[in-house]
Nucleic acid binder design. Structure first.
Lengths: 258, 258
DNA sequence: CCGGCCAAGTTGGCTGTGCAACTTCGCTGA
DNA sequence: TCAGCGAAGTTGCACAGCCAACTTGGCCGG
């Protein structure tokens, strides 16, 4: 099996993704230099035998990833050759870990089913009286604990999760086999103090600072499939984001109390 | 109508931005419901008297902001109605604070000029021997300190910064007057312990956890204009990200029978 | 009642065209 | 020498059309 999954562009057989993959490869390999200029859209279009619109579609992908600039009147300029982790790696801990060359692991600490509280119904868009599955998992990178994951699933997802073996590494992959897809997510990142469980699982002191990522994930139809709180040990991970005037994926907002 | 001047879409007189602004307004006001379906692209196009391509361009903006889904074969679905205006607030602490109804403040603690070290030359793409301006600033919201900002400017930017009065609230606005624009930024977010300066300025204990944002900003041409480290008091701000697989998820359902 | 098939509706992808706005650079004239 | 002008090059924006892939819902038959 060719492990092409590393390249998000080439995975689907559309023209603009192929062009984007080629250009990304050329940019990250330094073919255009550190702050070099790309060929004109028309030149790229002719080179690939496609229309200029297709090339523009490909370049929009690279612009969104922060690889190139985009101004009217002048050619695109390489912003950075450093390989930026694509957002797809934010959707799955397993996928993200593997993309960094680490070996992801996980252990299910607890799993229970109970009625959803008000906040959970709000986040998962559930009717009053609905039940949810709540999991607590310890995540490791190459054997060392790095993150505690508290996830709330709606029952139709939780029933699948409950059938997975407790030491399964990836959740999204087996769920995909059941037709449950994770495609869109909203993340909120802040700092929180470790509680007793966190301290025990991560091997840190109670009250020591953890990087918290709250995440609400939906499937392609917009239906929420999970609501999760991940708490990372400092120093092990950091979140990297690129944004530009054209397309902004990151925003800063005042924290609401909880 | 509630036409706020903050609206990023309507600021420029292009068709697709106007359409995007209208749709965003309608979505956030709940006109299509919490998880409602948008009109078809063709219907929107006819309504505005524009081509379908223009509508698609507008919808791409909303999809990038995480407002709507986007699947082949079915109409777009509203993902969330609550959404903050995005980019200008991220680049400018001042602009962000005001949009939240808070009164931003700032005080310059120190400013010096010195040769750039290796890391700074790397980040700002400077020649060996170049000089940089280094500032340390305390930022406040409605009088209370929330953030310590350590910024390194290349000399051509720093010379403008150095001429600003020490109690100036916004930096990006006066710099824009000099033709220095902030358009692209790479952010890295993690946790760090407060050092002596942080503790003194923010009024916290030494070693207490702070949310750190490292930021490298470039102008429209791709030239780095600042490299900054912001350290936030926990509980004051959080960072929010939306990401999407958007299209790469061609789901292979398990075939029945085998 | 249920399952499968089909048609209508909808978005994704690609092409081709045209014009406007903007940048860059060389040349000209003062 | 240098400021300014203008032409060439480049991207942004918009239009029109075509087909493929996919979803949905209804119809029909078992």
């Amino acid at each position: 099996m060719t492990d092409v999954a590393v390249d998000p562009d080439r995975s689907v057989g559309t023209l603009y993704r192929k062009v984007a993959a080629d250009l990304r490869e050329a940019i990250t390999s330094g073919a255009y230099g550190e702050a070099g200029r790309l060929p004109a859209e028309g030149a790229i279009a002719e080179q690939y035998g496609v229309s200029r619109g297709t090339v523009r579609q490909a370049l929009a992908v690279l612009r969104a990833d922060g690889l190139v600039t985009s101004r009217r009147g002048t050619r695109r300029v390489v912003l950075g050759t450093a390989r930026v982790q694509s957002f797809s790696e934010l959707l799955s801990f397993t996928h993200w870990a593997r993309s960094m060359g680490e070996e992801p692991g996980g252990r299910l600490e607890s799993l229970l089913r109970r009625p959803a509280d008000a906040a959970e119904r709000e986040q998962l868009r559930l009717e009053p009286g609905s039940e949810v599955y709540v999991t607590l998992r310890l995540r490791t990178l190459s054997g060392t604990p790095v993150m505690v994951e508290r996830t709330v699933y709606p029952s139709w997802v939780g029933e699948c999760v409950a059938q997975l073996p407790p030491d399964v590494v990836s959740h999204t992959e087996p769920l995909r086999e059941h037709g449950i897809l994770f495609t869109d997510a909203d993340h909120t990142i802040d700092v929180v103090a470790a509680n007793a469980d966190d301290a025990r699982l991560l091997g840190c002191r109670r009250g020591s600072p953890l990087l918290r990522e709250k995440r609400r994930t939906t499937d392609p139809t917009g239906i929420p499939v999970e609501w999760s709180q991940d708490r990372y040990l400092p120093g092990t991970v950091a979140f990297s984001i690129h944004n530009s005037l054209a397309s902004s994926a990151l925003s800063r907002h005042a924290r609401e109390g909880d």
